[in-house]
Computed example of a mutant assay.
Amino acid sequence: MRVLGIETSCDETGIAIYDGERGLLAHALHSQVDLHAAYGGVVPEIASRDHVRKLIPLLDTCLAEAGCERGDIDGVAYTAGPGLIGALLVGASMGRALATALDVPAVGVHHMEGHLLAPLLEPDPPPFPFVALLVSGGHTMLIEVTDIGRYRLLGETLDDAAGEAFDKTAKLLGLGYPGGPALARCATDGRPDAYRFPRPMTDRPGLDFSFSGLKTHTRNLWAERRDSPGAQADIAAGFQRAVVETLVIKCRRAMQETRCGHLIVSGGVGANLELREALRRAGEKAGWQAHYPRIEFCTDNGAMIAFAGYHRLAAGETEPERIFARPRWPMDELRPPGEAASRP
């Protein structure tokens, strides 16, 4: 079965083609970073309009790379949520229209399930069961995964997600957009122990996260020290270290609780090199292994949607002939492929 994947949940336009026997045949991604940089964040209307402009050219690029025609597509998977409603509707509309025109099934994919399964695209994927740390955009969560579609939420953020905290702190420090990579670059010139930063919610049991207090602490520290030599880099380094150590502490607890031998890390923050190194050291010490998708699949992409959609379509899951998009979609509503509950 050959599945076309479409990702338009936010500010990346992704297209990919996945074959059940041959694996990933092609993928193409367009980032809107330059469009939104002038505004310091994603502008939903601009994002939606750019998806409209880029989807068909990216589809043609992928088909050419895969050596396929549109008629060779056996199913369509598109991101149905969560995400920006206008952006989601662009991808959902195209996905539903293509499926109808080609007389093939279509399925709406949960964006976070795509991220969760992205490491399984690698040549040496982790075996089930594993724990997943999903750190993408407005989401930070720990999930125990026993199979595709069988997920148990272990903990999640109670306010700001790690990615949001990175972006807002970068903006506070005047580091530009996108904030996460800009802050990480600035942190390389700083001293992470120059100032004291809290490790939120690590002094109590449980696996939930909270980063709003850390963000407030950073704002107050910057207001006090902004004129000090090297303060920008030192604060960036200290903030990054606090986020990384908080995530690592919670991951260690999750691995102890579940007794899993494998942790996967996915989402944009999963590309952070300090986080990767800290989790590698923690895993070596405790006897578990951390896995990541390749850097290009940490951010939003069509390959993860094509892969997740393939497993659901191959199990006989399909959507009725309508456009399905949910800006908010709890992961606990997901079921194993072929056992999905009816769409609300």
Rank of each mutant, 00 (worst) to 15 (best):
V243T: 14
P336V: 05
N301W: 02
Q256M: 13
M304N: 09
D34K: 14
V131C: 04
A290V: 10
G155Y: 07
L117Q: 06
H30Q: 13
L4H: 00
T100P: 01
A254N: 07
A278P: 11
F307G: 01
A38P: 04
I264D: 00
G206K: 04
D332T: 14
E144H: 14
P330N: 02
T140S: 11
G83T: 07
I264E: 01
H110W: 07
L313I: 02
M112G: 03
T8K: 03
S266L: 10
P127G: 07
D203A: 15
R328D: 00
A87F: 11
L98S: 05
A278R: 14
R70Y: 02
D167N: 05
F211D: 01
G137I: 10
G71T: 04
E45C: 10
R241Q: 12
R252T: 13
L116C: 03
A106R: 03
F197A: 05
K215S: 12
G41W: 04
G316I: 10
V244W: 05
G75D: 01
S9L: 07
H115V: 10
S93W: 05
H139C: 08
V135N: 00
L221V: 06
R312I: 09
E321V: 12
G81N: 11
D19M: 05
D193G: 05
K171V: 00
G137C: 13
R191F: 08
G108H: 11
A242C: 09
F324N: 14
C62N: 05
A165S: 15
G14S: 02
D72M: 00
D103A: 08
E164T: 06
A314K: 13
P200S: 04
P192W: 04
I235A: 08
R152H: 14
R253E: 12
R252K: 15
G287I: 03
T100E: 10
I143E: 03
D103G: 00
G283W: 14
H262E: 12
K215Y: 07
L24K: 02
H217E: 13
T157H: 09
A80H: 11
L120W: 15
G108T: 11
A161T: 10
D193V: 08
R49A: 04
P44V: 03
E21R: 15
L88D: 07
S48A: 15
G95E: 09
G155E: 04
C10P: 07
G206M: 03
A278Q: 13
F239A: 11
V33R: 01
D167V: 06
L102F: 03
